[in-house]
Simulated scan of single mutants.
Amino acid sequence: MADNVEQTETPQEQKQSSRNLTPLFEANGDCIGWICIPNTAVNYPVMFTPEEPQKYLRKNFEGEYSVSGIPFLDGASTPECDNLIVYGHNMKNGTMFSDVTQYRDKAYWEEHPYIEFETAGGLRIYQVFAVVCLKKTDEWYGFSCFESKEQYQKAISEIKDRSLYDTGIEPQFKEQLITLSTGFGDSKDSRMVVIGVEQELKRNIYISERVKPMNEQIYYLVDNINRQSTKANKSHFCIFTITNIVRKFLITTVSAIISPPTYFHEAGNG
């Protein structure tokens, strides 16, 4: 969907932050999350407008005309579907999904094996397992939700066979995929896709790097409970600092889950 186009306007700089996405959601309700490939130019908000899938093909975050657009989630996808398809332009000035095309070199994959996608439901880490050149009409774009284990395995096997190189990674049924798609090649119909599979272990490593070591065990517990409760739309966690002690406070909207609210203390502090 996204073509090779020349950038004619200065892109708005994307700032690294603590990934507090609330201000983005408040500024534009079409924003669903943030996509990042560490140490690359891929570091942008992601939009989602299923009723008008290509709304941000030529619009920036503010909804103004922009030749580079902004990355957006496929209209047939949802945050919980089997294959998240995210589109972004391959800009000649190196912005948006330009770096995605660098994955044609296996050495680049070795240096940048992970994709981060963060939404209101939390941070997910995906390991790249296939890099494929295809057409915009390819059947892969029709795989948002797989109907069976057999369909999942068949699609994975076929896409791996078409990959530019073997990564040795074999996704398993029920593991969520993410597909980054951008224009590549001489034809307007030509695309390159980089496909990753969710890695729970790597995600936990990311979490441990973001908190103090003494917080790690309790953070894993809180984070895992948070992921499950978020899916059920029943509860969420907030972080409070009280006299320099970081506490995890469970706020529940369903008294049957935990009543009264439970405090999780920093390890070693009671």
Rank of each mutant, 00 (worst) to 15 (best):
V131F: 08
W109K: 15
T95C: 02
T78Y: 04
N93D: 05
A130V: 15
Q127P: 06
Y114V: 03
M96A: 02
E118G: 06
D74F: 05
E110T: 04
M96T: 14
T78I: 02
Y126V: 08
A76E: 11
W109T: 08
D105M: 13
I85L: 06
G94V: 00
N93L: 03
N90E: 11
S98Y: 04
N93F: 00
M96L: 14
E80F: 12
L123I: 12
N83C: 14
N93W: 05
Y114S: 04
N90S: 10
A76C: 10
L73Q: 01
T119G: 11
V86C: 14
Q127N: 08
Y114P: 10
K92L: 01
F97G: 11
F97V: 15
K92D: 08
A120T: 10
N83E: 00
N90L: 07
S98D: 08
F117V: 15
Y87A: 08
H112W: 12
Q102S: 14
G94T: 01
Q127K: 13
R124M: 13
K106P: 02
E80K: 15
Q127T: 03
T119E: 01
F129K: 05
R124K: 10
V132M: 05
F97N: 11
A76N: 06
F129Y: 05
G75L: 00
T101V: 14
A107M: 12
A107P: 13
D105N: 14
V131Y: 03
A76T: 13
T101L: 11
I115H: 04
D74C: 13
F97C: 09
I85V: 14
G94A: 00
P71D: 00
H89D: 06
C133Q: 12
Y108Q: 05
Y103W: 15
L123F: 05
H112G: 03
C133L: 13
Y108H: 10
M96Q: 14
G94C: 02
Y108E: 07
Y126S: 12
N90V: 00
Y103K: 15
R104N: 07
V131I: 10
L84N: 01
V132F: 12
A130Y: 00
Y103C: 12
T78W: 01
M91W: 03
V132A: 06
K92A: 11
H112F: 07
V128D: 02
T101C: 12
E116V: 10
T101R: 06
I85F: 03
